[in-house]
Design a protein around this nucleic acid. Structure first.
Length: 529
RNA sequence: GUCCCCAUCGUCUAGCCUGGUCUAGGACACAGGCCUUUCACGCCUGCGACGCGGGUUCAAAUCCCGCUGGGGGCACCA
């Protein structure tokens, strides 16, 4: 394969998009596989929406994913500058060529006139577009044009699409077929805006040619525009690059529409702050359009490069499945070594301040008092793909009236009863223990555990390896099975926790006894009501 | 509306180009089991798809046509 020069050309008009990374993966893989180069070019031709901070964010996120480039605005390269706002002179020179060759023309129509035109076309049931007989400016003589320019009338320069019955076509290497469109279905696209900046179409073609991009990989949303691009290439007399139009990432709902921030997180910063591993995100994203011949799903970027074969790129639109991504991430994190795990956690925490912003981060810090509390506790709501709402939560925010208070206490009572039911299947406790505990305010199940712990300490060494590793037989005989859960809950506060004996050992005798004491009191108070 | 793209389990896909080896394979999810005095991990099993209709052929998930469904474009935004 010929060395491929590929490029990612994001527009710095918003948060770095997951689709940008998705595309960059294949750009970079293609370049590396063929011994070519991968280029980052910033398409900031929209003066209104482009912001320098977005460019920085894009660069940071792509670097986070280790999808770094061989040439770009930050590192330069033989075809600099790599920022389109710094190349306006180049576009103006090139538009002259198109003008001279008769492939472009001046247009002085105002926005209102254009709107009018579209209405006319709509009524006439014609496809909307500025072309053919609908374009008065196409018919302007050179003198007329010159005098209008002299008069200072603002203008744009449009592509002069042929008006005959012909057609344009190009080969799409993912769909593996020739895509065709008739001239009359293509509108006279604006090439140079009235602010003197090029539109995407012009800048993109000119830069791709000048930067020797021979492999264009981008989303399939660009297919309709590609016909215009081909016309521009032809106007200049340039050879076409190879086109690979990637299927668009879709929302995982039944609609499967193009992935959108209204329905799902799409910002790379979100993925980063949420704690996704960059390797895993890249792996998962690659899977959206590519599959290894061996059917291997988990692979590193270099493994992807090794086996990369553009023929295997898929044309069908994949739904982005957060559940599967999560499972990949979990698997990765739980099987990695402790050093990488710590590194990952540390990086995530470092980034969290940047993501939340200083104010919000400090707010989190204030709530961070109990040192054992993990970062996620206060920040999870940022990262849940689906929030769970509790009935109690919703009842709770109602305005309080007498009736409301009544309702509230009823719910509270019900809730407490459910907690109490945990002890429905209480173990049978010897009569003497219950007597000893005092029948009125002691929960027998808890007390049995309490008692047993005390016995154990009498019989064995709590701090010794016995408790750390093996379950003591003496304990086993004395305590019914359900008691283990009671022990676990009382000592860890949760029905699910790390292995019990190691945890108890780590807690130590005094804290175990203290927690049991507290738990006994807590449950007794619940049961009495 | 119009032009274009796409179509295998719920989801991501392998297979399709070079028809038979496909009673369609894998992964995530789900269900059951094993392991485990919890949870998780791990292991095993199960559930589950070639959108529909026509061709072509001895034979079609695979080739052709139509339909249906989904998606994208139709800006002085990219």
């Amino acid at each position: 394969m010929e060395p491929a020069r590929t490029r990612i050309a994001p527009s710095p008009t918003g948060d770095p998009h997951v689709g940008t990374a998705y595309q960059a993966i294949f750009d970079k893989a293609f370049a590396e596989k063929t011994g070519g180069q991968f280029i980052l070019r910033i398409e900031d031709t929209d003066q209104v929406r482009s912001r320098p901070e977005y460019e920085l964010k894009i660069i940071n996120c792509l670097k986070w994913l280790k999808l770094d480039w061989d040439e770009g605005p930050d590192i330069g390269g033989p075809y600099a500058p790599y920022r389109q706002s710094e190349r306006t002179e180049i576009y103006r020179e090139h538009i002259k060529i198109l003008l001279e060759k008769g492939f472009a023309y001046y247009c002085f129509c105002t926005a209102d006139e254009l709107e009018h035109l579209r209405q006319e076309q709509k009524i006439a049931k014609l496809p909307p577009g500025y072309f053919g007989e609908y374009s008065p400016c196409r018919k302007l003589t050179e003198d007329e044009v010159r005098s209008k320019i002299k008069a200072g009338i603002p203008y744009v320069i449009r592509l002069k699409v042929p008006i005959d019955e012909g057609e344009v076509s190009f080969f799409d290497s993912i769909r593996k077929k020739q895509l065709v469109k008739k001239f009359k279905e293509i509108d006279d696209q604006v090439l140079l805006k009235s602010d003197g900046f090029p539109t995407y179409h012009l800048a993109n073609v000119v830069d791709d040619y000048l930067m020797k991009i021979n492999t264009v990989i981008r989303g399939e949303e660009w297919i309709p525009s590609t016909f215009k691009h081909v016309l521009i290439y032809q106007g200049f007399g340039w050879k076409l690059p190879q086109f690979y139009h990637l299927a668009l990432l879709r929302n995982p709902d039944s609609q499967k529409s193009k992935i959108s921030k209204r329905k799902n997180p799409v910002s790379l910063e979100w993925f980063r702050a949420a704690g996704y591993s960059p390797e895993i995100l890249v792996n998962y994203l690659a899977l959206m359009a590519y599959s290894l011949p061996e059917g291997i799903e988990r692979f590193s970027f270099s493994e992807l490069v090794n086996s990369f074969n553009p023929d295997r790129l898929s044309a069908a639109g994949p739904a982005f499945d957060f559940v599967k991504l999560d499972s990949f991430n979990t698997e990765y994190l739980s099987h990695t070594d402790t050093v990488s795990f710590r590194k990952h956690l540390k990086e995530r925490l470092d980034y969290l301040e940047e993501y939340l912003g200083e104010d919000l981060f400090k707010q989190m810090m204030e709530r961070f008092k109990p040192l054992s509390q993990e970062v996620g506790y206060w920040t999870d709501f940022f990262f849940k793909t689906k929030l769970q709402y509790n009935r109690e939560d919703i009842e709770g925010i109602k305005p309080l009236s007498i009736t409301d208070v009544k309702t509230f206490s009823e719910i509270l009572n019900k809730w407490l009863k459910e907690k109490g039911s945990l002890f429905e299947n209480l173990p049978v406790i010897p009569e003497e223990i219950i007597t000893e505990a005092g029948k009125e305010n002691m929960n027998p199940g808890i007390f049995a555990v309490y008692k047993a712990i005390n016995n154990i300490v009498n019989d064995t060494d709590f701090h010794g390896s016995l408790l750390k590793r093996n379950f003591p037989d003496t304990f086993k005989e004395k305590i019914p099975k359900t008691a283990f859960m009671i022990l676990r809950i009382s000592c860890t506060g949760s029905k699910t926790s790390l292995p019990l004996w190691e945890s108890l050992h780590r807690l130590g005798y005094y804290r175990v006894i203290a927690r049991l004491d507290e738990f006994i009191q807590f449950t007794s108070s619940l049961i009495r009501k």
